[in-house]
Design a protein around this nucleic acid. Structure first.
Lengths: 213, 213, 213, 213
DNA sequence: CATGAATGAGTTTTCATTCAT
DNA sequence: TATGAATGAAAACTCATTCAT
């Protein structure tokens, strides 16, 4: 009966947090309502009071996590295309010791794989993917318009940058390929960013920290 | 009692095939022994006769799938670094309609995500990852040595090429991003291969079909 | 704490109405407090405020429904035994389209079956049964005394008439035996009423509508 | 997966027996799979091995009980219409102390009430009802043809006899109306059988015992 | 009075695994 | 090998009831 919108913000957030922790701890395949309840300070029944089924709860969780990232995507400290591109790419880097960010990336990855078998998940995550691609594409398009970047296909380039980053990060979080995300950042700088620059302008030195895409 | 080595080759292969089909159909998270038995022409009990536990069966399956790909990785029709690189990259492209290859890529992806929570999976898939990275790195190194490619870090470049391809393919198979793998191939040609070439030598026109990495 | 006598008449009636609708819609076996609350314009908690337990609420409902019928049983427009008997029998007939009356008969039937497993229900419904049997028995006794009916056992005859009617009605409401109650009315006229009449007096033509026994 | 036909006769019968005992003990409304398992010498899981759902098990039970009665309906020791009618009616009588037969009648009654809310039950029980009505109607028709009974509507008369008996028996088993079924037998003899007989032939003295309808 | 939140016991169902044959 | 039967633990989900407000 109760749907996510009826849930009190606090309780809703608490459940989302518990779900997040349980998902990271047990993995999607072995995640049970009990696991979530164990991370929650209320009873298991209450989860069913707020969400009729496990599926519904997890769907709310996908909405939550996708929304969380989306909110941070737009944030930027500069208008400069090159800087914005570097900032975007940099946010994907997960350094050793940043376990929370690695965990977050993993949760998202687990959901993405489930999306294959879950239409509702797929719909939401496809939007998330498109938003990311578009974000990079917009930066590239802006750069071209500003004469900073050479003329490339902004959409195709944006997609390549985004999926390459996700691919590297996947190896880092699933197989423990240490610093793979940072190495991809460097490779993008070497092969893509450098190539995009029409003149000899030097890429800035940077170190960022932002949303986990 | 019985361990995988005791399994008759034929039965073993049949079970591996059934596991593959069941995994693709139901997804790792919802995969049951019954699902596997349903794709097998024998009973569920027989699965337990051959493999003591579900975990053991799935582990044998990871070995099987990783071995299958490994066997094909070495195959190549040429010695030429540029051609070998193009051939490698090209093997990742999954065109619309190649459902079997998409399905295979998905199965591998599901296992990769499980690897986070399963040490034995992780070990085997990490080797698979390293083999792939090394394969590309070797091609790049050969190219540098042959003077065809400019001097780059072969390992870092190999890893970037491989993970970028996997990242693009992931979006194609999970979220239905049509032709994402082909677009990544083209972006790699545009940004990486082109950049690697020291002279104005033209990349060959190619269309390959190979192992699913 | 709160017992049925504390309940405000209006609220009590509203709850009884909601219980009735919920019972008819879901059946006793699947009836939940939530089902009743759904037919009520107030919350589920309020039901527990008025009735400590579900059992108590349903017991009040049995009282309510039995009392409702009892109130109507005495009503009659005539003193004439034959007419009163015909009127009584006629009130059991449920014609096609009289869904409300069919529904009511079903609710009563559901409660009667539960009575086997519930002493309190049984007590109340047994009284209801006895009242009905007595009502017919009185009519028959009056008829005998008035010389309109031949000498039969009033109690046994009253019980037979009543239970036969209920039996026929049961098939109509449970298995959809259309017009079974009317056919029973006609059979009672043919075999019983006609037989009771000492002389050749014709049974009146009638069509009634009254309480659901 | 498994359907009733696959179940080994013995196990099937054991489960049906356990279901019967549990149903009588707890009533349909409160019947749980655990209750059935408690009457079964095997585990609760086994019930689900044989019947996917509780609903399916109960449906098999309806089939079983209806089939059981049906098998006995045809049995008769005579060809004589009057005797067959008396025998049929007599089989409905449940004497004090015949608790098994009372229990059986109750089980059937419980299922009949559930039929309202369960299409599959309704279908099977409607057939059972029609078979019974037809059985009596055939006896009456035979009697008319043989000149033993006067000309009445065999179907309507058959239905009235059957539903009257069931109605009386319902009061006996639900409200403890002792000997109500026997009294109905006597009333049917007095009002119906006697009336049917064209000449002064005396109804035989009888006392039967047969299937519970 | 009235409600939404919360709970715990219980209910159906699932599923890996074992066992007798 | 091969299977159907059987089991126990755990899973999702239900629901009457209680409680704070």
């Amino acid at each position: 009966m109760a749907t996510e919108v009826d849930v009190q913000p606090d309780t809703h957030e608490e459940i989302m947090g518990a779900t997040y922790r349980a998902l990271c701890k047990h993995g999607y395949a072995h995640l049970t309502m009990q696991d979530i309840a164990d991370e929650f300070d209320k009873s298991r029944s209450l989860l069913h009071y707020h969400y009729d089924t496990k599926e519904e709860l997890l769907l709310a969780f996908v909405d939550n996590i996708v929304g969380y990232i989306g909110d941070r995507l737009a944030e930027s400290e500069t208008e400069e295309p090159l800087e914005r591109l570097e900032e975007y790419v940099d946010r994907f880097v997960i350094e050793p010791g940043e376990e929370d960010r690695e965990t977050f990336a993993l949760a998202l990855l687990e959901l993405r794989v489930q999306a294959v078998h879950n239409e509702a998940f797929r719909e939401r995550l496809a939007t998330h993917y498109e938003t990311n691609v578009q974000t990079v594409a917009d930066i590239v398009a802006d750069g071209i318009e500003a004469g900073v970047f050479r003329e490339v296909d902004p959409d195709a380039t944006g997609e390549a940058i985004y999926t390459a980053l996700v691919g590297a990060r996947m190896y880092q979080v699933t197989l423990g390929a240490e610093r793979a995300s940072r190495r991809m950042r460097d490779r993008l700088a070497e092969f893509v960013v450098d190539d995009l620059l029409t003149d000899g302008r030097e890429p800035a030195d940077y170190a960022g920290n932002g949303p986990e895409n």
